[in-house]
Design a protein around this nucleic acid. Structure first.
Lengths: 226, 226
DNA sequence: TAATTGTTCTTCGTATACACTTTGTCCGGA
DNA sequence: TCCGGACAAAGTGTATACGAAGAACAATTA
């Protein structure tokens, strides 16, 4: 009986560096660490209650992911997304999510479609309850689920990382728009279910156009021009 | 005069971890470390003549980039690209490079076009000299240059990383095909110069179709199905 | 004021230690 | 011969300490 427990614990073992990385990411996305803020190793180590080594490893990955900028011999600061990169991000995301929608349409099983429909149902429900946070969360889940259904690991991992950044930049306005985007989501899932790749791609593009327009508008007043 | 030197030296400073990462990447791409090979920290530290810390930091980034797989408490092994991921990689690359071509066409200055033409000239020359390695190198440079001209940092960084993986998987057959692809490159640069986004995108897609067909063929006999 | 110097903070890299897992080996028993 | 457990070896994960070097900032001096 003890072996079972140990096995599970062993498999479950998450290296501290990964926990730190996850915590760092969410702290940045949630705005606990603001763009431009300096992140000294000692401070992070203290914040997360670990030694400097795991922190350093997490920082390198966070840099590769674009969440922090590291200047040699000067340390890490939280990256500052500019409005220019917003346009750029959406340009890339448009292509990738369109591809994901097409692949998903071509490969989705009945079970896949059912899981998407279930998410739509939960979304409708949460919208009625005015639970915006939950709606936004389901929104994310839906997108990630479509990526997963696309069955392309490269696409999935790249788009996922991009999606995190989008959330970071637009964490302010995302919740308000979420309910509006739900109608577009239904279109998208319908298209995926139909198995028509062209139609799915079009639906994804329509959705992203609307999202980028709304997000951009929001960014004008929110994050500012720089 | 001294200030200039100091500034340059300061900026030039490459942390060991970055040097290790670069060396590790090229060692993997060049096949010095084969897929599935175990990479113990001590060994890498000795190979590169550094301590464990820089090696560990480089390994984490290499993992994020997909060059190695790290299993907790068991260490890192060189990733094994399967033929399935080849198709997936090209599917993503197609979209991204098409976007890059379009943006490049829309934004290229006269100087940009000139630099592309210069690369084409050098390529023609190297082809005549039968210097296949040089041709392959110029091939890479051309693609990266177009990404740079696109002016989209996200696109650039993602496509660059993808490009590295393509080189890794097809390092065997890339050199042979390089001369053939040159004609397609000329089409592409012509399209970029014309400023016609649609045309540039089409040229990029044509090029990638040919490249993926050739690469796939080569992989059948080379790397094998798994 | 402007240039220089000195101090302090921090990163970068090395080295060391140790707990804990995983893996491999060996050995006795069925 | 084959199996299962004890035991040893290898390697990772984490913490800690230390020195060198750079960067930032304050103090001092011309």
């Amino acid at each position: 009986m003890a072996e079972d427990l140990r096995d599970k614990l062993g498999a479950q073992h998450l290296p501290l560096r990964d926990q730190v990385l996850a915590a760092l990411r969410t702290a940045i996305i949630d705005g606990d660490y603001l763009p431009g803020e300096r992140l000294t190793e000692d401070r992070l180590a203290e914040d997360f209650g670990v030694s400097r080594n795991p922190v350093r490893e997490a920082l390198r990955v966070a840099e590769a992911e674009g969440f922090v900028v590291i200047l040699p011999r000067r340390g890490a600061v939280v990256a500052s997304p500019s409005s220019g990169t917003i346009t750029d991000m959406f340009a890339v995301r448009e292509r990738l999510e369109a591809l994901a929608a097409r692949l998903a349409a071509e490969r989705a099983t009945a079970a896949d479609v059912a899981s998407l429909r279930a998410l739509l149902d939960q979304g409708r429900e949460a919208t009625q309850r005015q639970d915006l946070a939950r709606v936004a969360e389901l929104n994310s889940t839906l997108h990630l689920r479509i990526l997963q259904i696309s069955g392309n690991p490269w696409l999935s991992s790249i788009a996922k990382s991009l999606y995190l950044h989008v959330q970071w930049v637009f964490r302010l306005g995302a919740a308000e728009r979420a309910p509006h985007s739900w109608a577009e989501h239904i279109q998208l899932v319908d298209a995926i279910e139909s198995g028509d790749g062209d139609r799915a791609e079009r639906a994804a593009l329509d959705h992203l156009d609307a999202a980028s327009a709304a997000a951009y508008e929001n960014a004008e007043g929110g994050y500012g021009t720089r």
